[in-house]
Amino acid sequence: MKKYLIIILAITVYACDFSKRIDTTAAVKEMRERQVKRVLPQDIVNQVDVWGQELQARLAKGQVADSLSSKNKVRIQSGSIEMLKKSVKDAKINEMLDAIAFGLIQKQDIPASIQKNSSGDSLYYIYPTNNGNVTLIGFSKKQVIIQMDKPLIK
């Protein structure tokens, strides 16, 4: 009986592999990093505002819109309000362009604004330029969330 007990004990000890110990502090840290984070609509709008201001400053310094749009994965359109209304088919954005046109006619100071399109899947950072044109910077909500979480994606 003692032989069987010793054999079972030896098999049990042999089956336990102590070389593969897990560093619990590193495991907890990685679990926190991979934790799903909730992104609120206000977070998305705030991020679009920050990025829109950065792109507006870069465009004002003379950087090319095509290179900025491909680098930042956004859609940049600039021109007269009539031209933009023809190229943008969204009703909410066209209403916003009409409001900007009215404000420009009234010689009002129009700050940059952020508008959602009708379907709600994109946000537009809209601002009038010094020469009377308007610039639209279109952000996809999905792309904004990906760019916000980029440091966490491996």
Rank of each mutant, 00 (worst) to 15 (best):
I137Q: 00
G103K: 07
I76G: 00
K2E: 15
S70A: 06
S67L: 09
Q63P: 03
L40G: 08
D66T: 09
S122T: 13
S118R: 04
V13L: 09
M148R: 02
K89P: 08
Q108L: 14
A10Q: 00
Y14H: 10
A99K: 12
Y14S: 13
K71R: 12
G52I: 07
L84G: 00
L59R: 01
A26L: 12
T129D: 14
Y127D: 02
I110K: 11
I81M: 06
A65P: 00
I6W: 12
D121T: 14
D66R: 07
Q106V: 11
I100M: 10
N94M: 05
K154R: 14
A26K: 15
A91M: 11
N117W: 02
Q53F: 06
V36W: 01
C16G: 06
Q47Y: 10
C16M: 12
S122E: 10
T129L: 11
P151K: 02
D98I: 02
A112M: 10
K116H: 14
S87F: 15
Q77L: 13
I105L: 14
R34W: 09
L40I: 08
E33W: 07
A65N: 00
F18Q: 13
P41K: 03
G103L: 08
Y124G: 02
V28G: 05
Q115L: 08
M31R: 04
D49Q: 10
R38L: 07
L97V: 01
L9Y: 02
Q53L: 03
D98Y: 06
A65C: 01
R58M: 03
A57V: 10
V64Y: 09
K107D: 05
S78Q: 02
L5K: 08
F139M: 06
R58D: 03
R38Q: 05
M1W: 15
T135H: 00
M31Q: 10
Y125T: 04
